[in-house]
Design a protein around this nucleic acid. Sequence first.
DNA 1: CTGTTAGCGCTTTCAA
DNA 2: TTGAAAGCGCTAACAG
Lengths: 335, 335
Amino acid sequence: MKRHVTIKDVARVAGVAPSTVSYVLNGSRAVTAETTKAVLEAVDQLKYRPNPTAQGLVSGAYRTIGVVSAQIYSQYRGRVVAGIHSALRGTGYHPIVSGIEDFAEPDEVLETVMGRGVDALIFHDHFFPPERIAELHRQMPVICVAREIDGMPDRSVLVDEVNGGYLATQHLIELGHTRIAHFVADHHFQGAAQRLAGYRKALEEAGIPFDPALVFQGDNLGDSGLRLAYELLESGVPVTAIFAANDYMAYGAILALHRRGLRVPEHISVVGYDDEHTSGFYVPPLTTIRQEPREMGRTAAEAVLKLLRGEVFRTVVTPTRLIVRESTAAPGHAG
Amino acid sequence: MKRHVTIKDVARVAGVAPSTVSYVLNGSRAVTAETTKAVLEAVDQLKYRPNPTAQGLVSGAYRTIGVVSAQIYSQYRGRVVAGIHSALRGTGYHPIVSGIEDFAEPDEVLETVMGRGVDALIFHDHFFPPERIAELHRQMPVICVAREIDGMPDRSVLVDEVNGGYLATQHLIELGHTRIAHFVADHHFQGAAQRLAGYRKALEEAGIPFDPALVFQGDNLGDSGLRLAYELLESGVPVTAIFAANDYMAYGAILALHRRGLRVPEHISVVGYDDEHTSGFYVPPLTTIRQEPREMGRTAAEAVLKLLRGEVFRTVVTPTRLIVRESTAAPGHAG
DNA sequence: CTGTTAGCGCTTTCAA
DNA sequence: TTGAAAGCGCTAACAG
């Protein structure tokens, strides 16, 4: 395999000192136009690319942002990462992503990410122990997406989850539903409680009493939606609509209803949450809550850059909105 | 922010030379039990972790595998990455992933991945220019997943795509279908042609003449499945089944049929490809072709490790199998 | 305006 | 069996 071209090679070819090459490339000191030209030519000729590892060793800065993201197979989560990428573009910083697997060990994830030398961290993972995150927070800038950690004020990019839950439920109520079940998101996830709060708020506002028998704890997977829907049906509690706290659970619920001969939305309306890219092609296309994952990623990356520059960042809350498709309709639609 | 504990700190505390600490930690030279103990205690006490960046600088090896993966939001692709992670676990090597975005620029992706210092590369991306990959291949071990590149023999982990296409089509034929449309996968993707070849092979074997009017070029997205299905319906060509070269196109197709009042599988059978995690919860649950993405990732990682050790690797072909669910049935099922 | 030198954290000769 | 010293590729004082 081939040896790397180093700054010395460039210096030799350009007939200058290595440091001069460094100064030209980094603009960290005034250099004659002539010298600059010679250096740049040598760089071109040798196709020299500085070794960021060595740069990092010297400066103690790696120009790298570690990103820890669980369950990246969700389009929603992938988009957050995409937003981070795009905000970092042209800044000289690059993201390195880990925690692709659902249940990657915290230590391992950290070793992957930290081991490479990172200047800051973005967490989009609700499994990672908060104490560990807080600990890292003491060593470098850390931003959390869709999560808040005790002792880390102004270090989050949040989503207006309460409003999301509210919007979903209110939509159902406006359609005329009063018996609305809610499949709660995975309990590790902070948004779960907030979506539930939004659900309760909408009910309350409409004067519909909250019924605990209508709320079921899920775990975000399709299978849990399926199971919960069966449970709901078997419980005999009358219901005309389901608000599932994520799209996958909504899929599972719709399948369960289908298997029991219940059609959506004719017999039961269903609304999801996240607007995964498959939801518009589901049968029926799913009414859901859309967040702005790309925007969230961008904001998180910009926050980190800000902290790195020593500026202040204040926690921001990104909006949610309702996407009405075809899985919701007025109740009693089919009798 | 906190300064890192260095090998010197450990040496001081243990009362030995920095090099001795290195020898103890790497086992690269015999050391007294006593000295070893002192060093290990100091390491423990200071919570010392060697800086891999510095190690990399010296050794020229970074113990890092770059992974370039397009469209990682597909569960299938995410699983390949998970397989890579898991095969690397405990080897001292770590993957760093890039190319999360659909249309990330090759140069940018490379800068992210290469810039960090990687010892080898795994490509799971059919957009990346082959010449660029071949060029990298000259500098370090490179393995491609589900793709072969000219001039790079024995550098791929392949999938038995022909068999996949064959299995899907044969299943339909066994059910009694003879008019089977095929939605071809994105043309950037090598497997597209192979899946088509499998389709043709199954037809031929059954004595069913190949009809070009039944094949439609898609681009892997749900929307393309939708569009193609409308096209198919409008063409007036009679058809009782569709084999879509990926699940997302199958979703789109099913939605289009649904909109035209056609039920699946009663009026038209549909089979997909990839077995995305949502497919089992689709209505109806999708019959599809399952690959072994996790296995593929593992194999790719092991291949790279092998090459790094100077051993030989021979291209392997991983199996595909049919998963029969509820989107397929005998034709004329509903009249 | 430019070159020399030291040193980032580590490994690995070379000496003892 | 161990320590000292050089050097990986780069940057940033320090001199001129």
